[in-house]
Amino acid sequence: MLTYLATALPRFTSPAARLLALQCALRADALGHLRVPHGLLRGMRLYGCRELWQELAQAHWLDLPDLKSAPVEVQLRDATLLDQVPGRRTRRHAAHWALHPAPLALPATAPPAMRLTALVLAAHTCAHDHRGVDMDILARLCGHSPQQTADMLDQLVRIRTLSTWRCNRDSNEVFWQLQPQAPTRPAALPRRDRTPQR
Rank of each mutant, 00 (worst) to 15 (best):
A105F: 05
R92I: 09
G143R: 00
W97H: 11
A98E: 00
M114S: 11
A110D: 06
R140E: 12
M114F: 03
G132M: 09
T90E: 15
Q148A: 15
P111L: 11
M135P: 00
G87I: 04
H124Y: 10
H128N: 13
A118C: 08
L138T: 02
L119N: 03
C126I: 02
D83Q: 15
C126S: 15
T109G: 10
A122G: 06
A118R: 03
L99I: 01
R115H: 01
Q84W: 08
S145P: 07
H96R: 12
H144W: 05
L82E: 07
R131Q: 13
V133L: 15
A94L: 14
G143I: 01
L99K: 01
V85N: 06
A94V: 01
H124E: 09
A79M: 04
V120Y: 01
Q148R: 14
Q148V: 07
G143H: 04
L119H: 04
T125P: 00
P101V: 03
Q148G: 13
V85Q: 15
A127V: 12
M114Q: 14
A110G: 07
A102L: 07
D83Y: 10
L116W: 09
G143Q: 03
L76E: 05
A95R: 04
A102D: 06
A79D: 09
A98C: 07
L106E: 02
P101L: 05
P111M: 08
M135V: 13
T80I: 02
R140Y: 02
L76A: 07
A79Y: 04
H96C: 05
H128Q: 14
A94K: 04
M114H: 07
P101K: 07
A110Q: 05
S145E: 14
L106Q: 08
Q147G: 12
P101D: 01
L141H: 11
H96Q: 13
A108W: 08
D129M: 12
A118I: 03
L82Q: 13
D78G: 02
A113M: 05
D136Y: 12
V85Y: 07
